[in-house]
Design a protein around this nucleic acid. Sequence first.
DNA 1: GTATCTGCAAAACTTTTGCTTATTT
DNA 2: AAATAAGCAAAAGTTTTGCAGATAC
Lengths: 144, 144
Amino acid sequence: MSKRIADLNRYLAEKGLKVTRQREAVAQVFFDTTGHISAEELYLKVSRSHPGIGLTTVYRTLRLLTEAGLAKERRFAEDTQGVFEKEDTSRHHDHLICTRCGKIVEFKEPLIEKLQEDVAQKHGFSVEDHRMELYGLCKTCRTA
Amino acid sequence: MSKRIADLNRYLAEKGLKVTRQREAVAQVFFDTTGHISAEELYLKVSRSHPGIGLTTVYRTLRLLTEAGLAKERRFAEDTQGVFEKEDTSRHHDHLICTRCGKIVEFKEPLIEKLQEDVAQKHGFSVEDHRMELYGLCKTCRTA
DNA sequence: GTATCTGCAAAACTTTTGCTTATTT
DNA sequence: AAATAAGCAAAAGTTTTGCAGATAC
C-alpha cells in the first residue's frame, strides 16, 4: 500500500469515516495520475476499472482528499472546470503553460519565492501560499 | 469621452459592430470600477442607472471588451465566478490576497518578472503573460 | 432597408444536495 | 445494530444560446 493511501486511511480513521471500495479506487487512480485532472476526467478513468461508480462520488472523494491535505484544487486561465493535483507541501511548485499546445511544466524557484516574501512584507502581508503561472510558447511550438 | 471608450468605439467601427446605449453603459461602469468585478456585480451596478438591462448583455459586453483587449478575465482560488479587470498591458500587475478579510492589493515587481523569464528560458519557454497571486494575512488581520 | 443587438427564456455545463438503499465498522 | 457512504435524480450556480422584436447604421 502506497504512502498516500496510508495517509488517507489514517485520516479516515481519525475522522471516523469509512474505507470503501469507491474511495480506494478514486484515490488510487488519482495518486497514479501525473499532473492535473478534472473531476470529470477522473470519473471516466475510474469508470474503466469500476463501472457504475458515480460522478458524485468522485466529487465527494476529491473534496475529501482536499480536506485531508492530499489534493489541491486549481483553476487555470478561463477554464470553467476546476482541476485537482496531488498536494505535496514540501515541494510546492509553479507552472509553465504553453498557450499553443497546452503543455504544462512544473517548476520550483526558491529565489522567486524569496522575492515574493519581500514584496509581501513591503505591503504588510505575510505569505502562506502562492500561485504563479507563466504563459508562453514551449520550444516545440516556438520552432514549429 | 475617455480614452478607453474611444478605444472601444474604434474597435466596434473596425468590426462593423454598433454603438448601443447598453454597450456604452456597461463599458462606462466597468471602466469606472477599480479592481475586479464579476458579471453579476457589474450587472447590478449598471442596473441602477439602466434598469431593464439584461445580465446576458453584460456577459456579452464583457466578452466584447475582452476581445477588444480592454478587459481580462481572471479566476481567483476556488471562486466559482470569474471576475474581470481592466487590461492595461503597460502596467501588468500581480495580486496580494488576504485569506482572512479578502483584501486584494495589486503590485508590480520587475525583479520577479526578470526571474520568471530566466526560469522559463531554462525550460525552453518564452513568456507572453503571467499571473502571480500571493495568499496570506494583511497587517490588520495579522495583528487583530 | 438591412444587419446587428437586446432581453427573455431555455439550455448547457459544472458542482452540490436530498434521499433511499447499500455497505462498513 | 448504528452510522456512514453510494448512486440517482434533482437542484443550484454560472455562463451561453436561440429567437422575436427593437435599434443602429
